[in-house]
Design a protein around this nucleic acid. Structure first.
Lengths: 398, 398
DNA sequence: TGCGATGCGGCAAACGTTATCAGCGGGCCA
DNA sequence: TGGCCCGCTGATAACGTTTGCCGCATCGCA
């Protein structure tokens, strides 16, 4: 029909920088090329490929065939310029090397890619100033939306609020002051309650909390939840609190502070603290869980890999990611006027050896099943873990 | 001078979706606005802001002032469309949850952001098919270049090669068959040699290698380097090899396979294997390092945090990132015709407790200095680590 | 058979930059 | 003093899409 089809890919061949490696680069095919090949107009091609408006059945077929044959790939830059949407989401993290975030990044990127978006990543190294810079850059790059785990409860606030005024923005994991933007996080109180219930049920009575100072949501909420729930165990528990930061080093140090009080359980505000505490306890010759139970929070990979495996509160990472993207999509779909929403998801208690039963003087009954042969299994701790979900999702308006 | 300045930001105010949260959004300022405000043409403004061509001193000043005052931010989409360069780099990873990669991502993003680029991240979940899809998408988004850690030595090859034909591409960490693209990785042989030298110097003689099967570069090169270097220790060492995969589970299982042979050192092909081996050894009541030394490879955070800390080969992550960006920039600057380059960087041995001296029946002499007080320190293992660099960087043409 | 509605397709104008080309002064040299 | 060159600036045409608007058949209905 149209004799000009065959030469489309060759015509106008532009030698970009001639020479070797990249070969003789031809212009990449545009809508115009597809239009010419399929014998209709650019507008029609655009419509059938983007599906924006119904178009005749066999015209559509011709277009699709031509596009396929020429290997047409839409130019996102042009599309972004014209339609004012890049199909891109910015993800701003405080520290990708914090062992909790890789799993979150994984789930977020998968969820977003599944709906055709791409993810621009920024790691701001726990520096709110750098964070503000990255946010600015991402906005200049015209991201459609932002996902932010703020570096600092207070000092991130201005930049985040300013960004939230320009694009849909969802805070994750950490708060950033009230009324700034939609947010998604784990229900820290429910998680702490799961831990305390478990310890109560297994007969622990002299419990200490090893937490972190500061006003960041994880630190403050877990601390408060412990204080509120521990009184049930015994009178003094609510007051037995040692505060440092969220590090392994502090976990080690804390043991030296509280060990002479002979606790029978250490409730740590996150897994890193628990790892440190466990190490120091073992150095001191304590039997975990015989003498003392240790629990963490977050369920980072290391918690499962420690020996004994650490009982911890697992954050529902896939659900957090799904909820965050859901919120984003809702805002992007025009729900910009709705009230801000703070979603809290229920965590799950993962019971491992570090809080096992006290009397059954744990000998070597476990680990035997980790025989050579099951090399392919996931890197789980040898002992079997029991999972206890919290009551279902709590979503509250601000 | 120009009385029309003040109304620039207000004129043409377009209510994007009117209503609440986002406020009444005004058009964002363009070159035209700056031009009008500074009383010159768009072309001139573009020139002074992009610095593409010299422009009169005070014109430049006027333009910059106007841009500043109006809060002009260049539109990357338009720029990308016109200049055929997006200022973005695609980063394709096999598994962000692999504990070695977060540090790499961190360094890469910092290095790239420092030169004004943004990073599009894709995690392909160890699936070469998904990987090909992500690469395709990134190319359609017109990334200027790609950084790829291929998921599979063989099955990633076609997609990577095809991509390398379209944009500058640097392979990292893992190979992808010969002649595909520039690559940057650690010198696995040198690393293994460091380990073997160290073990020889500390009197270990009955050494076993716990490695991984397969043809991937890390597995094959470390295996080969062990076989080549172990003969120096004693006659049989080169043959004492157990192969599984790169997991904690295999590390545990391997101990059960080799323990009855009473080795005095286990050389593990990476840190995850070493963690598993260490756990199982401790379960069996073995003294590490008294009875047996354990070494790893990579220096993931967990290696420092294990108790005892694991002696390992540290990959020079910042240097790997710097080298990769250097290679990219070189290609982007037009060096597309040069021969492919395979850069190998020298690693460093980090000696921790797991390979400590044998005789000094390690009691509790360490750990005491981890007194409460130094809560702020980095999450390092309590014992002091010694670092031994390998001879300097080896870069070889393909 | 005439007329409005409807469905499909084309034309052309944006989107905000960069790059090419030409104009227009002023200085320098003859 | 006239011609040339050069340094600076302004118009303007792209870059590849999307989209509003209009025309043209076709179809149903009276």
């Amino acid at each position: 029909m149209d004799p000009g089809v065959a030469d489309v890919t060759v015509r106008d061949a532009v030698t970009v920088r001639d020479t070797a490696t990249r070969g003789t680069a031809t212009r990449d095919v545009t809508l115009r090329d597809v239009a010419r090949a399929s014998g209709c107009s650019v507008a029609t091609v655009s419509r059938v490929l983007a599906g924006t408006r119904p178009v005749g059945a066999d015209t559509a077929r011709r277009v699709r065939a031509a596009a396929e044959e020429l290997g047409y790939r839409p130019n996102h830059a042009a599309r972004a310029l014209r339609s004012r949407a890049t199909g891109t989401v910015g993800l701003v993290l405080p520290q990708i090397t914090n062992p909790f975030y890789p799993a979150l990044v994984r789930e977020l990127t998968h969820a977003l890619h599944a709906e055709g978006r791409a993810v621009l990543l920024a790691d701001c190294d726990d520096d709110p100033v750098a964070e503000a810079g990255y946010i600015d850059d991402l906005l200049a790059r015209r991201v459609d939306a932002l996902l932010v785990v703020p570096a600092d409860e207070r000092r991130s606030r201005d930049a985040v609020a300013a960004a939230a005024a320009r694009v849909p923005l969802v805070l994750m994991d950490r708060g950033c002051g009230p009324g700034v933007a939609d947010s998604v996080a784990v229900d820290n109180s429910a998680g702490m309650a799961l831990v305390l219930d478990h310890l109560a049920a297994t007969g622990r009575r002299r419990v200490w909390f090893v937490g972190a100072e500061g006003t960041a949501s994880a630190a403050a909420e877990r601390r408060a939840a412990y204080a509120a729930g521990a009184a049930v165990l015994d009178e003094g528990a609510a007051g037995r609190i040692a505060l440092g930061d969220f590090s392994v080093a502090w976990g080690r140090a804390a043991v030296d502070l509280v060990w002479e009080a002979r606790p029978d359980a250490l409730v740590c505000a996150n897994d890193l603290i628990a790892v440190g505490a466990l190490q120091r306890l073992q150095q001191l010759g304590a039997d975990v869980p015989g003498d003392v139970a240790v629990t963490g929070f977050d369920d980072i990979p290391m918690a499962a890999l420690a020996a004994p495996g650490i009982t911890t509160v697992r954050q529902p990472v896939p659900e957090l990611a799904a909820e965050a993207t859901r919120l984003l999509n809702q805002r992007l779909a025009g729900g910009e006027e709705g009230p801000q929403r703070a979603v809290r998801l229920a965590p799950e208690l993962v019971v491992r050896e570090s809080s096992g039963p006290r009397p059954t003087a744990a000998g070597d009954e476990r680990g035997a099943e980790a025989a050579p042969g099951d090399r392919r299994g996931p890197a789980e701790a040898p002992g079997r873990a029991t999972r206890v979900p919290a009551p279902r999702q709590v979503t509250g308006p601000e």
